[in-house]
């Protein structure tokens, strides 16, 4: 049986969007997602909330693990198209970050239109704000401390390498335990 989506599409997506907007404006700070819609495994409800808020028939989504039930759910509720290739995806849903493709493979925009770049929704194990590396950049007053659990080794190295191409880049939404952390391309991980 098909699962439901947002109970109140207009206001649930509005409330979710406002959290996403604040998350993107204030990177590396976990924000609680207000609505968690039903979601077929392995997609977490947190990730589904973002997909339902931002995706529709005009966007493409790349699924790390193609899955008929998920595909049908997304087609029915969001009318969205799945992308076969990572570089064609407007959005990508990563359910296993330890085996995710290289960040370089996603659309990073072009210099005249850097916005034509992918947004990645990455399901992780959890966030810690009492330890971990520090981040800085637009949206961050001084620095923010954040550990993101469940990423593959070398993830941050890959991302730092990409930052040489700014303003090209990919933007990330990490989700875990009812929270979202956004990490636009401009956020820097501070060494040491």
């Amino acid at each position: 049986m098909m699962l439901a989506a947002f109970a109140d599409p207009v206001f649930d997506s509005q409330r979710t969007f406002r959290e996403l907007l604040q998350a993107m404006a204030r990177p590396a700070v976990p924000r609680r997602l207000p609505v968690l819609p039903p979601s077929p495994a392995p997609v977490m409800p947190e990730a589904m909330a973002i997909v339902l808020t931002l995706c529709d028939a005009t966007t493409t989504l790349w699924l790390q693990q193609p899955n008929a039930e998920v595909a049908e759910h997304l087609r029915f509720h969001a009318g969205l198209r799945l992308a076969d290739q990572v570089q064609q995806a407007d959005f990508a849903l990563i359910d296993d970050p330890t085996s995710m493709p290289a960040l370089e493979g996603f659309a990073r925009g072009d210099l005249r239109y850097p916005d034509r770049s992918a947004s990645l929704i990455v399901q992780v194990e959890g966030f810690r704000t009492d330890r971990g590396p520090r981040f800085a950049g637009p949206g961050i007053r001084h620095t923010e401390m954040l550990a993101i659990e469940g990423l593959q080794d070398g993830f941050w190295r890959q991302r730092a390498a990409l930052s040489a191409q700014l303003p090209l880049g990919v933007d990330l939404y990490f989700v875990a335990a009812q929270h979202v952390v956004a990490m636009p391309r401009t956020t820097r991980l501070l060494e040491g």
């Binding site: 996403l20 993107m24 404006a25 808020t53 931002l54 401009t186």
Partner: peptide, 12 residues
């Protein structure tokens, strides 16, 4: 609009 706004924030 929301997608565009998020990209706008990501690329100040």
């Amino acid at each position: 609009l929301r997608r565009a706004l998020l990209k706008a924030v990501a690329i100040p």
